[in-house]
Design a binder for these strands. Structure first.
Lengths: 161, 161
DNA sequence: TGTCATCTTGATAACGATTATCACTATCAA
DNA sequence: TTGATAGTGATAATCGTTATCAAGATGACA
């Protein structure tokens, strides 16, 4: 096992290898290249950007393969798919120090994405849900607005929804 | 003006009429039918369901027209587009008593959607955002889980993310 | 009431992201 | 080395939504 106590992966590439083995799948140059590129990029990577990055090394990897590989990474818990306002799916590595139950602040003008986590907020949400008879197993919290840099650049503050 | 002090519309159809007039647009049988159907349905209406409903009255309205009309309703603040987990856009009437800054509880097994609102949660979110230099103007909070009915039906509780 | 500029409509092509298909290739245990 | 099986690339297909465009409806004004 290449995962530590918290279930997080010290070495994602090795973890992927294990998963492939365990499932009776096969290793491949492409999967390795895609996974490497993905973890090298970090952040919240749109698939097309990942395709571009991978193709710098090997121009003939197919988009289909990249999609397939990202599904694989998601399946084994090394990546988490996210959908923000746009149409595309972004993948986020889940090898981080913090848990993956974090939320996102998204700057609508420069696209910056900041992660945050608040136990108090989560706690309140669970409580509200419980009050309505719900048992929550997945949350999606996205706050859209403008980061300090962007506000500085233009007319100061707008409305707060 | 057909809006009350809160900016909410007593009579959405009339409000739409005003908007059309003000913008120099034109009234049409289709727009009227679509708006009527939409407000009659209530809730969180997927476009295809709305198309079906409208076609019960007038089978020849085009999907394009329904999409166009919903954009119009969104533009004049009578409807709010929402995107939950699925691929499609749902529209929600904003003629309700409560403000439109509410959040959603979504049952992943029966699809039920419950709205809730928590000033404390919103307040905490704004505070966290401010701490990161963000000024929020749009939020998206969706809690996915299982409603009480659905949990009753099958094996009791699952994980809490 | 008729005219005419302008807006709307319906049918359908186009779109963008993602998935399915399929012939061909690579992997790996024996 | 072989053979069974999984993976790949190219591309067609899908799905929700938008763009296009010829034809039809609307409404201010004469």
């Amino acid at each position: 096992m290449v995962t530590d106590k918290g279930g997080r992966h010290r070495n994602p590439l090795a973890a992927l290898g294990e998963f492939i083995q365990k499932k009776g799948l096969k290793h491949s140059r492409q999967r390795d290249a895609i996974a490497r590129a993905f973890f090298a990029m970090g952040g919240h990577v749109p698939v097309d950007a990942l395709v571009a990055r991978v193709r710098e090394q090997d121009p003939r990897v197919s988009v289909a393969t990249v999609y397939r590989t990202m599904k694989l990474l998601a399946e084994c818990g090394l990546a988490v798919p996210r959908r923000f306002g746009e149409g595309q799916t972004r993948y986020e590595p889940s090898t981080r120090r913090h848990s993956d139950a974090h939320d996102h602040l998204i700057c609508t003008s420069c696209g910056e994405i900041v992660e945050f986590e608040s136990d108090r907020i989560s706690e309140l949400q669970l409580r509200v849900a419980r009050r309505h008879g719900f048992e929550i197993d997945r949350r999606r919290v996205e706050l859209y607005g403008r980061c300090s840099d962007c506000r500085r650049g233009t007319s100061k503050g707008e409305s707060i929804a």
